[in-house]
């Protein structure tokens, strides 16, 4: 299944979701799509001024352009997602995940989809590491209708 990740740039979430047989919807995918599509030059990310316009589908015109541009990346992923894993204390996320207002909107739109969502915090010790990894594995297994790997 297609799993939206929050933060969408997370190495850990991307790895664990893929490790247990699902498709991580990470920030790299819409960036790759832009980097591999011909058009006008707009370094570094090939996000062009058209992206904030595409973002109007998710946020009104009075919303800052940086939010709408980011939503042009994430909006389609959220629509595609069949489930989501969310880390609720991802305070040190930058770049694609560097805008708090965008992130608030992403989280709201995910909840609104009413798809299965797993909320977690980053583990801060070994015990929490077990809980964290176990919860993700269990969540993903349950999406498949139960069972382990």
């Amino acid at each position: 299944m297609k799993i939206f990740l929050y933060p969408a740039t997370s190495l850990i979430l991307s790895d664990l979701v893929e490790r247990w047989g699902h498709e991580p919807l990470s920030a790299a995918l819409p960036i790759r799509e832009r980097i591999q599509t011909a058009g006008f030059e707009s370094p570094p990310l090939q996000i062009t001024p058209d992206d904030p316009k595409r973002g109007l589908r998710y946020a009104a015109v009075e919303v800052p352009s940086g939010i709408r541009g980011r939503m042009a990346l994430y909006g389609p992923l959220i629509e595609e997602a069949e489930a989501a894993v969310i880390i609720t204390d991802a305070d040190l996320a930058f770049g694609c995940m560097g805008c708090a207002r965008t992130n608030e909107l992403i989280l709201y739109l995910i909840r609104e989809r009413e798809i299965p969502v797993l909320d977690l915090t980053y583990p801060k010790n070994e015990e929490e590491g077990v809980v964290f990894v176990g919860a993700i594995r269990k969540f993903l297994a349950d999406l498949n209708g139960g069972g382990g790997e």
Partner: peptide
Amino acid sequence: GYYGHEFEVSSVIPYVSHG
């Protein structure tokens, strides 16, 4: 994005590996 990786690799991954 590098700093996000730096955070996860240095502060979180050891616990995930343990898990």
